[in-house]
Each structure stands twice: as C-alpha cells, then as structure tokens.
Simulated assay, not measured.
Amino acid sequence: MSQCFTELASDAQRLNHNIRPIDDCACDEELLYGERVQVTEVPVLTCTGLWRIYQREAENIVAPDGVLIADPVERNQVINAAYARLWLQDSRFQWAGLAAFASKQVGCGLLHASNTVDFIGQQRDARAQLRGIRREAGLLTPGRLEEQAKALKDYKAANARNPVSALDLHLGGELTLVQQQFRHVHEMMALGNTTLFLDIFPLHVFYANRGLKEFSTCLKAREGIYGHPMFPVLWPVGQKQLKFGQYFEILLQAFQAIEEGDIARSVKHLAEHEQRHILQPTIYEDTRLIALLRSNHASFVTGFPSGVAQAIELTLANQCRSLDDGRTIGFDDNPFANLADIEQRMEFVLRAARRFDDLLSGIHRSALEESIRDIAAGTVAR
C-alpha cells in the first residue's frame, strides 16, 4: 500500500512557533516610525499556513502540477483511491472507507453516462453513413453491395448498443436531447465528486498529522485561505455557489467522536456535512439535475423505457454491478422517490453507513478490506 500522506517538514514543526532559527533569518534595515531600525523577518507556522499545506495535498491528487485532471472518470479513480488509502492507514476513518465505495459508485454513473452519450453518437454516425451510401448509389447497386452490407451491419450493431434509439430527438447542434441530458448528469456528478473531495480530504489530513487539539484551534481559520493572490485555492464549484472552507460545528464533533472511539457517530456527522453542506448546494439544488434524477429513478423502478436508466444504489465492493449477498444497498423502490431531497438521501446514506459498519463486524470484513485495497490500487470491475 502506498503512503497516504506526503511527509512534510511542517509535520515536525510547532504551531505558532518560528520554523527557522532566528539566527538563520535575514536582518534588514527598515524605516519604522521615522527611525532606521534593524528588522528580522521570522517565519512562523500558523493555522492558515497549515491549511494551505493540507489543501495543496488534496489539490495535488486531482490536479497534479496544478492542472485539473480533465477526464472526470480518471479524476474519480484517484479520488476513490485517496479515500481508500485514508481508511487503510487509519480504520477509525470509517467515513472515508464508505466514501471509497460511494465515490466508486459515482464513477460507475460517470461511465454509464459517458458510454450512453458515445453509443448515441455512434448510432447517429452509422445511420448517416448508411444513408449517405444509399443516397449516392441507391439500393442493391452492383459493385457497392459489399459496402452497403457492411454499412447496414454497422448501423444495426450501433442501434443495438444504443438504449434510447427510439426515444431520442435531435433538434440541431452537436448532441441529441438525451445526449445533452446525460452530459449534464455527467458534469454535475463530476463537480460534486471533486468539490466534496477538496473539502473533506484536507480535514482528515489535518487531524491525522496535527491531532484534535490543533484541529479544534485552527478549524475556523480554514476559510481565510481562499482568495490569496499568491496561494490560490482550487474550488471548482465557485465561491458564490458554495463558500470555501466554512466552519461547521458538526465537523469538530465528527473528529471529536473519532478521538473518543465513537466511530458510528463520526460517520453520521461527516455524512451530514457531506450531504447538507457540500453536495446539496453544489449539485442537488440544480433544477435540471433534479428532473433528470427523478426520471432516471422512475424509469428504473417501472422498467420504462427499457435499458435507459441505471439503478440508484451502492455496492460495497470494487465493482459496479449489484450483489445479492447484502453488500448492495438500494435507494428506494418507490418510483416517486427523489434523490435530490435531502431527507430521503440522508436516510439512504445512513442506511448504507449502518450496513457498512455491520459488515465490518462480520464475515464480510475480509472481502470489504480486499475491495478497498483494490480501489486504492485503482482496480474496479466496471
């Protein structure tokens, strides 16, 4: 297993103390209050400095060398792995273990949406190719029969892969109506996945490296690192939609619970923060996404239209498909259930958290550990 956190010089330095001996600091003459005086600038490790360090740790995962990983699926994989490594390093971070599976499930949804967009595009291209040949040469044209047969075969294969071939509309532009819908879901899922990681991963790094006392002392200082011209913060959702690094008492309560060994309570508090404070304003208040999620869920539950929708569920394994051994938790079998509703979603999340906790205490623990190790290594069966 690779190390979860980078070893940093600050790990051994004291908060609010100089990080370099005074004798090693530069001394310059400056004009101060009308007099020339000798001034020595002494760098001091502050709460703000620590938050910048740990925020950069998270950014380096999703944006190596300062460039955000462009492919949301690839970015999701490194997020999954980072959550998994958190739990493998310290099993008290049970929220992170659950998040590795939940984020993996987001990756399954990203792939489903991306594949659907591609399948629709492939069918359109194949149909255009077939029609083009027929317009140019007509049907059953001598010398073109083999070409026409291949075009027809390619179209039928593309049509079979496309789950919405009979239901889609093309109103002009690059994408069909369904492609636009799936693309929007894809973008919003990726936004929520990345924003949550950049919020919550640094909290774990700070606590793991500095302990509860300094975490408590410094938590309110975190939001102050946003907006510095020399130390920009990567925050994809934007400050207007969701203010970076806000102080919430429930965060302190979550890590206090970890310190006290009440792991279930810590998971509950972090889940509340995750859903209410981050994901709700980031993605679940988007009216277009709400409509698409509700139609997807109704489609899956009712079976109409067939083949279009993906189940809203969480599988506690390193794979996308459902399992029948108790490791798959479904959202709701009511076609009118609404994932965007915070109360319905919290019930689902907490039910998954309880199942995860129960399975860790039983015969499935070794299977869960193996799956988390696979996720940490980037191995997921799609």
Rank of each mutant, 00 (worst) to 15 (best):
H17A: 15
A271Y: 04
G362M: 04
I250N: 06
R382E: 00
F331I: 05
L212C: 04
Q89A: 14
H364T: 03
D90T: 03
Q253T: 09
K150Q: 11
R75M: 14
D11E: 12
A126S: 07
A317M: 05
R127Y: 02
E274V: 07
L50H: 00
L350C: 08
D357G: 00
I278T: 12
A84S: 07
V62M: 12
L175S: 12
A137F: 15
L130A: 05
L203E: 14
D28G: 06
R345P: 09
A298M: 12
L359E: 01
Q319D: 00
H184V: 02
E260K: 14
A102H: 04
E174T: 15
A157T: 03
L86P: 08
A84Y: 04
N18C: 10
S103N: 14
E274C: 10
D324M: 08
K240I: 02
V37M: 12
S165G: 05
Q129P: 02
V178W: 04
E343H: 11
Q344N: 05
D90N: 11
L252S: 10
S103H: 14
L314P: 06
K104S: 03
Q179V: 12
R52C: 02
A157F: 04
I225V: 12
I283H: 07
H228R: 10
E29R: 14
A70N: 13
E146W: 09
